[in-house]
Nucleic acid binder design. Structure first.
Lengths: 251, 251
DNA sequence: CGACGGTTTGAGTCCGGTCAATTGTCGTGG
DNA sequence: CCACGACAATTGACCGGACTCAAACCGTCG
């Protein structure tokens, strides 16, 4: 019972915070399921019994849009991109997922997006039916799933504002700021980020072209707000300015 | 117990289908809460005891972005728009809500969007704390909320594709097709829709300007695919063509 | 070293935005 | 019933930001 309350308290916090706050976090501890911060050993063994640990190399596809949705999955290590395609090949990346992120909230009987590894990835695979049974039996998990879905909806709406109303430059600034904010939450250095994705990926995420993204970065560089280092590393010199641009103060 | 299963079966269906399928649907019956198709009288009285029925005229604001999130609400009659603003006034409408739609899945401690009535609106207001207690006590409701959130996430991703990768003409076609699909689900005439929102609203939903939306409509008209009638009514003559354009077969 | 994929840079085009004027619609009141 | 005003919708002319096409420039890895 006390356990249940511990889990309930974390409901409206982002995944990263939860992980750091709770010593018993399954993701950071056993690295299996990041949804429940405090799970009794009995339930945990149920989870352990249905999970299968997998790996994928960069470029490999984890899930295919349109396939029957048989599994939930949990990213343990690495980065993946989630995208949808139009019939003629135009692509929209709806999100990049990092360790601790869960995949499976946003589909019904078939997967509605394709998921592809950007880096070598470790992940956990849960047969959907069995996973749902565990959720049925351990109620705090359902609460957490709902809380996560709620958070993702908020993020999705933010993304819509970006796609629909921000300029190219603002989009790029928003993208960088989102990465910085994420770094802050997992307590890394906040003034530099590593881009594991290509310019084309960033473009497909921001609703732009590779060329425009590239031009955007060089412009931020010449204005002295960022530095482009080797290995896709970006050092942000003027977080303040970048943040203001990202917010969309004015055109 | 049998009740619980009845509710569980409807999990991955859209709200409209649920309403029509279940005779005891709270929304279509008592018009109070559309989340649970089959709720025991005892729980239902709990719901009834915390709800307050409200009305709003067109143009009135139901919720304000940034305000403390004290309530959930359920649209009973009319249409509302949900939007976010950038500091300089640019606006992105993230969705239009219709009877049966629920508001409250996508916010945490403060409202993340503003909600405004497009037509005179009837809605139900639930104090958040008490609402959550009811959810705690009637588990199928939590499952339904999760299912809804999941559906909304899928829709949000579809929206991102539209905003990021579709042309103006395709956006307009997608918008009309979405309205037609919705009409079909609630069993209305499928070949005509009524636009309760202005061109400016449509523009802010599609990430365009009023002028572009207007031009888009007239072009669809001159091509003979739609007819613009009085009272904001749009008759779709060639659903096939419109649907193909909306899907984004090619530019 | 050379090949290959990713990135940057350049020149030109076009889609959708901007600004401005006109037309249409609807509710109100004389 | 019609005239009027306010606001929405349409249409036109022009502009500009992002796209397209193309070439040059990397960095990495066999």
């Amino acid at each position: 019972m006390a356990m249940a309350y511990a889990a309930l308290n974390t409901i409206n916090e982002p995944a990263e915070r939860r992980c750091n706050a709770a010593a018993g976090c399954v993701n950071c501890g056993a690295r299996e399921l990041s949804v429940c911060a405090a799970m009794p050993a009995s339930d945990m063994s149920r989870v352990t019994s249905i999970v299968s640990h997998r790996r994928a190399d960069a470029g490999e596809t984890l899930l295919n849009e349109g396939d029957k949705a048989t599994h939930f999955l949990n990213i343990v290590d690495g980065t993946v991109k989630v995208y949808k395609l139009l019939p003629d090949g135009r692509r929209q990346i709806t999100g990049f997922l990092y360790p601790g992120d869960l995949l499976g909230l946003a589909f019904n009987d078939t997967y509605t997006s394709t998921v592809e590894a950007l880096t070598p990835v470790k992940y956990c695979l849960f047969p959907r039916r069995q996973f749902e049974r565990v959720v049925d039996e351990f109620r705090p998990m359902e609460k957490q799933l709902l809380a996560r879905a709620s958070n993702e909806l908020v993020a999705a709406q933010e993304q819509m504002v970006m796609l629909g109303r921000k300029t190219a430059q603002e989009k790029i600034a928003s993208f960088l700021m989102a990465l910085i904010d994420r770094n802050r939450r997992v307590n890394k250095r906040s003034d530099s980020v590593v881009l594991t994705m290509t310019r084309a990926d960033i473009a497909d995420y921001l609703g732009l072209t590779t060329e425009t993204v590239s031009r955007g970065f060089t412009r931020l560089k010449t204005e002295g707000w960022i530095e482009l280092c080797a290995g896709g590393k970006v050092r942000v010199c003027d977080v303040e300015a970048l943040s203001e641009l990202a917010a969309g103060a004015d055109r």
